[in-house]
Design a protein around this nucleic acid. Structure first.
Lengths: 169, 169
DNA sequence: ATTTTATGTCAGTCTTGTTGACTTTCCAAG
DNA sequence: CTTGGAAAGTCAACAAGACTGACATAAAAT
Protein backbone atom coordinates (compact mmCIF):
# COMPACT_ATOMS: atom_id res chain seq x y z
CA UNK A 1 0.00 0.00 0.00
CA UNK A 2 2.84 2.39 0.76
CA UNK A 3 4.09 1.82 -2.74
CA UNK A 4 4.92 4.47 -5.25
CA UNK A 5 3.88 5.16 -8.78
CA UNK A 6 7.47 4.69 -9.80
CA UNK A 7 9.43 7.24 -11.78
CA UNK A 8 7.73 9.52 -14.20
CA UNK A 9 9.36 8.04 -17.26
CA UNK A 10 9.05 4.64 -18.78
CA UNK A 11 6.14 2.37 -18.18
CA UNK A 12 5.89 3.03 -14.47
CA UNK A 13 2.65 1.70 -13.17
CA UNK A 14 -0.20 4.02 -12.52
CA UNK A 15 -1.89 4.35 -9.18
CA UNK A 16 -5.32 5.27 -10.27
CA UNK A 17 -7.41 5.39 -7.17
CA UNK A 18 -11.10 6.10 -7.54
CA UNK A 19 -10.38 9.48 -6.02
CA UNK A 20 -7.78 10.31 -8.67
CA UNK A 21 -10.21 9.33 -11.36
CA UNK A 22 -13.05 11.28 -9.81
CA UNK A 23 -10.88 14.38 -9.81
CA UNK A 24 -10.03 13.81 -13.46
CA UNK A 25 -13.70 13.42 -14.30
CA UNK A 26 -14.51 16.71 -12.62
CA UNK A 27 -11.58 18.40 -14.31
CA UNK A 28 -12.96 17.25 -17.63
CA UNK A 29 -16.38 18.61 -16.76
CA UNK A 30 -15.16 22.03 -15.63
CA UNK A 31 -12.62 22.33 -18.43
CA UNK A 32 -15.22 21.62 -21.09
CA UNK A 33 -17.27 24.46 -19.71
CA UNK A 34 -14.32 26.78 -20.13
CA UNK A 35 -13.71 25.35 -23.56
CA UNK A 36 -17.17 26.33 -24.81
CA UNK A 37 -17.66 29.53 -22.82
CA UNK A 38 -16.12 32.00 -25.27
CA UNK A 39 -17.78 30.70 -28.44
CA UNK A 40 -21.09 30.47 -26.60
CA UNK A 41 -20.95 34.16 -25.80
CA UNK A 42 -20.24 35.06 -29.41
CA UNK A 43 -22.89 32.73 -30.77
CA UNK A 44 -25.48 34.33 -28.55
CA UNK A 45 -24.87 37.70 -30.17
CA UNK A 46 -25.73 36.22 -33.53
CA UNK A 47 -28.63 34.14 -32.27
CA UNK A 48 -26.91 30.84 -32.99
CA UNK A 49 -26.11 27.90 -30.75
CA UNK A 50 -23.43 25.29 -30.35
CA UNK A 51 -24.97 23.16 -33.06
CA UNK A 52 -24.31 25.95 -35.56
CA UNK A 53 -20.75 26.28 -34.35
CA UNK A 54 -20.10 22.58 -34.84
CA UNK A 55 -21.48 22.66 -38.37
CA UNK A 56 -19.40 25.72 -39.26
CA UNK A 57 -16.29 24.15 -37.80
CA UNK A 58 -16.49 20.90 -39.70
CA UNK A 59 -17.54 22.47 -42.98
CA UNK A 60 -14.58 24.80 -42.62
CA UNK A 61 -12.30 21.89 -41.87
CA UNK A 62 -13.43 19.86 -44.85
CA UNK A 63 -14.89 22.10 -47.53
CA UNK A 64 -17.18 20.24 -49.87
CA UNK A 65 -18.14 17.67 -47.27
CA UNK A 66 -21.48 15.98 -47.77
CA UNK A 67 -24.42 16.09 -45.41
CA UNK A 68 -24.04 12.40 -44.70
CA UNK A 69 -20.40 12.77 -43.76
CA UNK A 70 -21.25 15.62 -41.44
CA UNK A 71 -23.96 13.47 -39.86
CA UNK A 72 -21.55 10.71 -38.98
CA UNK A 73 -19.08 13.19 -37.52
CA UNK A 74 -21.60 15.06 -35.45
CA UNK A 75 -23.57 12.01 -34.41
CA UNK A 76 -27.01 13.57 -34.70
CA UNK A 77 -30.03 12.81 -36.85
CA UNK A 78 -30.33 14.35 -40.26
CA UNK A 79 -33.48 16.17 -39.19
CA UNK A 80 -31.60 17.84 -36.40
CA UNK A 81 -28.66 18.77 -38.58
CA UNK A 82 -30.94 19.85 -41.39
CA UNK A 83 -32.61 22.48 -39.25
CA UNK A 84 -29.26 24.00 -38.36
CA UNK A 85 -27.99 23.76 -41.92
CA UNK A 86 -31.12 25.33 -43.34
CA UNK A 87 -30.70 28.34 -41.07
CA UNK A 88 -27.08 28.73 -42.03
CA UNK A 89 -27.91 28.45 -45.72
CA UNK A 90 -30.82 30.90 -45.46
CA UNK A 91 -28.59 33.37 -43.65
CA UNK A 92 -25.92 33.06 -46.31
CA UNK A 93 -23.20 31.46 -44.19
CA UNK A 94 -23.20 28.12 -45.93
CA UNK A 95 -23.57 27.21 -49.57
CA UNK A 96 -25.03 23.87 -50.61
CA UNK A 97 -24.10 22.59 -54.05
CA UNK A 98 -25.53 19.62 -55.83
CA UNK A 99 -22.85 17.02 -56.43
CA UNK A 100 -21.49 16.67 -59.93
CA UNK A 101 -20.65 13.01 -59.78
CA UNK A 102 -23.63 12.04 -57.63
CA UNK A 103 -26.30 14.63 -57.91
CA UNK A 104 -28.17 13.36 -54.88
CA UNK A 105 -25.39 14.58 -52.67
CA UNK A 106 -25.09 18.13 -51.42
CA UNK A 107 -21.61 19.49 -50.93
CA UNK A 108 -21.26 22.14 -48.29
CA UNK A 109 -19.03 25.20 -48.34
CA UNK A 110 -18.69 28.27 -46.18
CA UNK A 111 -19.38 31.60 -47.82
CA UNK A 112 -17.22 34.59 -46.96
CA UNK A 113 -19.69 35.53 -44.25
CA UNK A 114 -19.58 31.97 -42.94
CA UNK A 115 -15.81 31.99 -42.92
CA UNK A 116 -15.82 35.26 -41.03
CA UNK A 117 -18.01 33.89 -38.25
CA UNK A 118 -16.08 30.63 -38.10
CA UNK A 119 -12.92 32.70 -37.74
CA UNK A 120 -14.36 34.76 -34.94
CA UNK A 121 -15.47 31.67 -33.07
CA UNK A 122 -12.32 29.65 -33.50
CA UNK A 123 -10.10 32.64 -32.76
CA UNK A 124 -11.72 32.91 -29.37
CA UNK A 125 -11.47 29.19 -28.74
CA UNK A 126 -7.88 29.03 -29.92
CA UNK A 127 -6.94 31.97 -27.72
CA UNK A 128 -8.05 30.11 -24.64
CA UNK A 129 -6.42 26.90 -25.79
CA UNK A 130 -3.18 28.71 -26.53
CA UNK A 131 -3.19 30.38 -23.14
CA UNK A 132 -3.82 27.07 -21.37
CA UNK A 133 -1.07 25.41 -23.40
CA UNK A 134 1.40 28.18 -22.60
CA UNK A 135 0.63 27.93 -18.90
CA UNK A 136 0.94 24.17 -18.92
CA UNK A 137 4.06 23.80 -21.03
CA UNK A 138 4.93 21.55 -23.96
CA UNK A 139 5.20 18.27 -22.08
CA UNK A 140 1.78 18.74 -20.58
CA UNK A 141 0.37 19.56 -24.00
CA UNK A 142 1.69 16.34 -25.46
CA UNK A 143 0.21 14.36 -22.59
CA UNK A 144 -3.06 16.17 -22.92
CA UNK A 145 -3.42 15.15 -26.54
CA UNK A 146 -2.42 11.58 -25.88
CA UNK A 147 -5.05 11.15 -23.18
CA UNK A 148 -7.79 12.84 -25.19
CA UNK A 149 -7.18 10.54 -28.12
CA UNK A 150 -7.27 7.50 -25.87
CA UNK A 151 -10.59 8.67 -24.48
CA UNK A 152 -12.36 8.83 -27.84
CA UNK A 153 -14.55 6.09 -29.21
CA UNK A 154 -12.69 4.23 -31.96
CA UNK A 155 -15.18 5.54 -34.46
CA UNK A 156 -14.42 9.11 -33.45
CA UNK A 157 -10.68 8.44 -33.56
CA UNK A 158 -11.22 7.58 -37.18
CA UNK A 159 -12.87 10.93 -37.86
CA UNK A 160 -10.19 12.68 -35.85
CA UNK A 161 -7.41 11.25 -38.00
CA UNK A 162 -9.28 11.50 -41.26
CA UNK A 163 -8.00 14.38 -43.33
CA UNK A 164 -9.86 13.42 -46.46
CA UNK A 165 -10.34 16.39 -48.70
CA UNK A 166 -13.81 16.03 -50.13
CA UNK A 167 -12.89 18.53 -52.82
CA UNK A 168 -15.56 19.10 -55.39
CA UNK A 169 -14.94 22.76 -55.96
CA UNK B 1 7.14 34.45 -35.43
CA UNK B 2 10.47 32.82 -34.67
CA UNK B 3 9.94 33.68 -31.05
CA UNK B 4 10.26 31.30 -28.17
CA UNK B 5 7.83 30.87 -25.35
CA UNK B 6 10.68 29.74 -23.17
CA UNK B 7 9.64 31.33 -19.88
CA UNK B 8 7.72 28.18 -18.95
CA UNK B 9 9.51 25.50 -17.04
CA UNK B 10 12.76 25.82 -18.91
CA UNK B 11 11.40 23.57 -21.60
CA UNK B 12 11.37 23.50 -25.34
CA UNK B 13 9.42 26.21 -27.02
CA UNK B 14 5.84 25.71 -28.02
CA UNK B 15 4.94 25.89 -31.66
CA UNK B 16 1.28 26.52 -31.47
CA UNK B 17 0.17 26.96 -35.01
CA UNK B 18 -3.49 27.49 -35.71
CA UNK B 19 -3.53 24.00 -37.13
CA UNK B 20 -2.18 22.50 -33.89
CA UNK B 21 -4.79 24.33 -31.93
CA UNK B 22 -7.56 23.32 -34.29
CA UNK B 23 -6.57 19.69 -33.83
CA UNK B 24 -6.61 20.13 -30.08
CA UNK B 25 -10.05 21.70 -30.24
CA UNK B 26 -11.38 18.76 -32.21
CA UNK B 27 -9.71 16.31 -29.88
CA UNK B 28 -11.49 17.99 -27.00
CA UNK B 29 -14.80 17.74 -28.83
CA UNK B 30 -14.47 14.08 -29.74
CA UNK B 31 -13.03 13.11 -26.36
CA UNK B 32 -15.88 14.73 -24.50
CA UNK B 33 -18.28 12.64 -26.51
CA UNK B 34 -16.43 9.53 -25.41
CA UNK B 35 -16.37 10.83 -21.88
CA UNK B 36 -20.15 11.08 -21.67
CA UNK B 37 -21.06 8.12 -23.88
CA UNK B 38 -21.12 5.38 -21.23
CA UNK B 39 -23.07 7.28 -18.56
CA UNK B 40 -25.50 8.48 -21.22
CA UNK B 41 -26.32 4.90 -22.13
CA UNK B 42 -26.95 3.97 -18.52
CA UNK B 43 -28.99 7.07 -17.80
CA UNK B 44 -31.24 6.29 -20.71
CA UNK B 45 -32.19 2.96 -19.15
CA UNK B 46 -33.40 4.77 -16.06
CA UNK B 47 -35.06 7.62 -17.93
CA UNK B 48 -32.64 10.21 -16.64
CA UNK B 49 -30.37 12.66 -18.44
CA UNK B 50 -27.00 14.26 -17.99
CA UNK B 51 -28.47 16.87 -15.70
CA UNK B 52 -29.41 14.13 -13.23
CA UNK B 53 -25.94 12.66 -13.47
CA UNK B 54 -24.33 15.98 -12.65
CA UNK B 55 -26.56 16.46 -9.62
CA UNK B 56 -25.87 12.93 -8.36
CA UNK B 57 -22.16 13.39 -8.85
CA UNK B 58 -21.84 16.61 -6.91
CA UNK B 59 -24.17 15.56 -4.12
CA UNK B 60 -22.10 12.41 -3.79
CA UNK B 61 -18.90 14.43 -3.76
CA UNK B 62 -20.13 16.84 -1.13
CA UNK B 63 -22.86 15.25 0.95
CA UNK B 64 -25.01 17.81 2.72
CA UNK B 65 -24.40 20.45 0.08
CA UNK B 66 -27.08 23.10 -0.25
CA UNK B 67 -29.14 23.91 -3.31
CA UNK B 68 -27.40 27.26 -3.69
CA UNK B 69 -23.97 25.70 -3.62
CA UNK B 70 -25.01 23.20 -6.24
CA UNK B 71 -26.38 26.01 -8.38
CA UNK B 72 -23.06 27.84 -8.42
CA UNK B 73 -21.18 24.65 -9.27
CA UNK B 74 -23.48 23.58 -12.06
CA UNK B 75 -24.03 27.05 -13.45
CA UNK B 76 -27.70 26.63 -14.21
CA UNK B 77 -30.82 28.38 -13.00
CA UNK B 78 -32.61 27.21 -9.90
CA UNK B 79 -35.70 26.37 -11.94
CA UNK B 80 -33.66 24.08 -14.09
CA UNK B 81 -31.91 22.42 -11.18
CA UNK B 82 -35.11 22.21 -9.21
CA UNK B 83 -36.84 20.14 -11.84
CA UNK B 84 -34.02 17.62 -11.79
CA UNK B 85 -33.78 17.61 -8.01
CA UNK B 86 -37.53 17.18 -7.59
CA UNK B 87 -37.47 14.09 -9.78
CA UNK B 88 -34.54 12.60 -7.90
CA UNK B 89 -36.22 13.26 -4.55
CA UNK B 90 -39.56 11.86 -5.71
CA UNK B 91 -37.83 8.74 -6.96
CA UNK B 92 -36.03 8.32 -3.67
CA UNK B 93 -32.48 8.86 -4.92
CA UNK B 94 -31.88 12.09 -3.06
CA UNK B 95 -32.93 13.19 0.39
CA UNK B 96 -33.47 16.85 1.21
CA UNK B 97 -33.12 17.86 4.85
CA UNK B 98 -33.94 21.22 6.37
CA UNK B 99 -30.83 22.85 7.78
CA UNK B 100 -30.38 22.86 11.54
CA UNK B 101 -28.46 26.09 11.81
CA UNK B 102 -30.26 27.86 9.02
CA UNK B 103 -33.63 26.31 8.40
CA UNK B 104 -34.11 28.00 5.04
CA UNK B 105 -31.40 25.82 3.58
CA UNK B 106 -31.94 22.33 2.25
CA UNK B 107 -29.06 19.93 2.63
CA UNK B 108 -28.87 17.23 0.02
CA UNK B 109 -27.82 13.62 0.50
CA UNK B 110 -27.88 10.53 -1.65
CA UNK B 111 -30.01 7.66 -0.41
CA UNK B 112 -28.74 4.12 -0.82
CA UNK B 113 -30.57 3.91 -4.12
CA UNK B 114 -29.01 7.19 -5.17
CA UNK B 115 -25.58 5.99 -4.18
CA UNK B 116 -26.09 2.82 -6.18
CA UNK B 117 -26.92 4.71 -9.37
CA UNK B 118 -24.11 7.18 -8.81
CA UNK B 119 -21.78 4.21 -8.43
CA UNK B 120 -22.99 2.60 -11.60
CA UNK B 121 -22.52 5.81 -13.54
CA UNK B 122 -19.15 6.75 -12.18
CA UNK B 123 -17.87 3.17 -12.44
CA UNK B 124 -18.52 3.32 -16.15
CA UNK B 125 -16.94 6.71 -16.50
CA UNK B 126 -13.96 5.76 -14.37
CA UNK B 127 -13.43 2.60 -16.38
CA UNK B 128 -13.01 4.59 -19.56
CA UNK B 129 -10.85 7.15 -17.85
CA UNK B 130 -8.68 4.45 -16.33
CA UNK B 131 -8.29 2.72 -19.67
CA UNK B 132 -7.33 5.98 -21.37
CA UNK B 133 -4.86 6.77 -18.59
CA UNK B 134 -3.29 3.33 -18.82
CA UNK B 135 -2.88 3.66 -22.56
CA UNK B 136 -1.41 7.12 -22.27
CA UNK B 137 0.95 6.56 -19.36
CA UNK B 138 1.66 8.55 -16.19
CA UNK B 139 3.45 11.46 -17.79
CA UNK B 140 0.61 12.04 -20.18
CA UNK B 141 -1.88 11.88 -17.33
CA UNK B 142 -0.05 14.59 -15.41
CA UNK B 143 0.03 16.80 -18.48
CA UNK B 144 -3.61 16.12 -19.16
CA UNK B 145 -4.61 17.37 -15.74
CA UNK B 146 -2.39 20.43 -15.95
CA UNK B 147 -3.89 21.53 -19.24
CA UNK B 148 -7.46 20.90 -18.13
CA UNK B 149 -7.00 23.01 -15.05
CA UNK B 150 -5.50 25.82 -17.10
CA UNK B 151 -8.49 25.69 -19.39
CA UNK B 152 -11.08 26.25 -16.67
CA UNK B 153 -12.58 29.59 -15.81
CA UNK B 154 -11.04 30.88 -12.56
CA UNK B 155 -14.41 30.53 -10.90
CA UNK B 156 -14.56 26.87 -11.81
CA UNK B 157 -10.98 26.32 -10.67
CA UNK B 158 -12.19 27.48 -7.29
CA UNK B 159 -14.91 24.85 -7.23
CA UNK B 160 -12.50 22.26 -8.54
CA UNK B 161 -10.08 22.80 -5.67
CA UNK B 162 -12.74 23.29 -3.04
CA UNK B 163 -13.01 20.24 -0.84
CA UNK B 164 -15.24 21.84 1.74
CA UNK B 165 -17.19 19.24 3.59
CA UNK B 166 -20.62 20.70 4.10
CA UNK B 167 -21.26 18.12 6.77
CA UNK B 168 -24.56 18.54 8.51
CA UNK B 169 -25.28 14.89 9.06
C1' DA C 1 -40.96 45.70 11.53
C1' DT C 2 -38.77 45.46 7.36
C1' DT C 3 -35.59 43.67 4.21
C1' DT C 4 -32.87 40.13 2.39
C1' DT C 5 -31.86 35.37 1.50
C1' DA C 6 -32.88 30.52 0.29
C1' DT C 7 -35.86 27.82 -1.74
C1' DG C 8 -39.76 26.24 -4.40
C1' DT C 9 -43.20 26.68 -8.04
C1' DC C 10 -45.97 28.10 -12.15
C1' DA C 11 -46.03 29.51 -16.88
C1' DG C 12 -43.97 30.15 -21.12
C1' DT C 13 -39.99 30.17 -24.52
C1' DC C 14 -35.88 28.39 -27.00
C1' DT C 15 -32.40 25.16 -28.72
C1' DT C 16 -31.36 20.89 -29.88
C1' DG C 17 -32.11 16.55 -29.84
C1' DT C 18 -35.56 12.53 -30.97
C1' DT C 19 -39.03 9.38 -34.13
C1' DG C 20 -41.99 8.51 -37.96
C1' DA C 21 -43.88 9.21 -42.46
C1' DC C 22 -43.51 10.81 -47.00
C1' DT C 23 -41.31 12.73 -51.36
C1' DT C 24 -37.83 13.53 -54.83
C1' DT C 25 -33.81 12.37 -57.12
C1' DC C 26 -31.09 9.18 -59.24
C1' DC C 27 -27.52 5.34 -59.24
C1' DA C 28 -27.15 0.63 -60.17
C1' DA C 29 -28.51 -4.14 -60.47
C1' DG C 30 -31.71 -7.23 -62.35
C1' DC D 1 -35.90 -0.58 -69.05
C1' DT D 2 -37.68 -1.29 -64.84
C1' DT D 3 -37.23 -1.35 -60.18
C1' DG D 4 -34.97 -1.38 -55.69
C1' DG D 5 -32.76 1.24 -52.59
C1' DA D 6 -29.66 5.03 -51.14
C1' DA D 7 -29.20 10.10 -50.37
C1' DA D 8 -31.32 13.99 -49.23
C1' DG D 9 -35.04 17.01 -47.99
C1' DT D 10 -39.52 18.10 -45.74
C1' DC D 11 -43.27 18.02 -42.39
C1' DA D 12 -45.19 17.02 -37.98
C1' DA D 13 -44.98 15.93 -33.31
C1' DC D 14 -42.55 15.50 -29.21
C1' DA D 15 -39.03 15.66 -25.09
C1' DA D 16 -35.09 17.13 -22.35
C1' DG D 17 -33.05 20.69 -20.49
C1' DA D 18 -31.75 25.08 -20.66
C1' DC D 19 -33.79 29.99 -20.14
C1' DT D 20 -36.77 34.27 -18.14
C1' DG D 21 -40.13 36.33 -15.25
C1' DA D 22 -43.34 36.40 -11.62
C1' DC D 23 -44.82 35.01 -7.32
C1' DA D 24 -45.00 32.41 -2.55
C1' DT D 25 -43.09 31.07 1.70
C1' DA D 26 -40.15 30.75 5.49
C1' DA D 27 -36.56 32.29 8.16
C1' DA D 28 -32.59 34.89 9.02
C1' DA D 29 -30.58 39.47 9.34
C1' DT D 30 -30.99 44.27 9.94
Amino acid sequence: MGDRGGSNSGEALLFLTDEHLRRAIEAMFFAYRGFTADPDRILEEYGYGRAHHRALHFIDRTPGTTVNNLLSILGVTKQSLNRVLRTLIENGLVESRVGRKDRRERHLYLTDTGKALERELSDAQRARMRSAFRQAGPEAVAGFRTVLEAMMDPNMQRHFNNNTQTEER
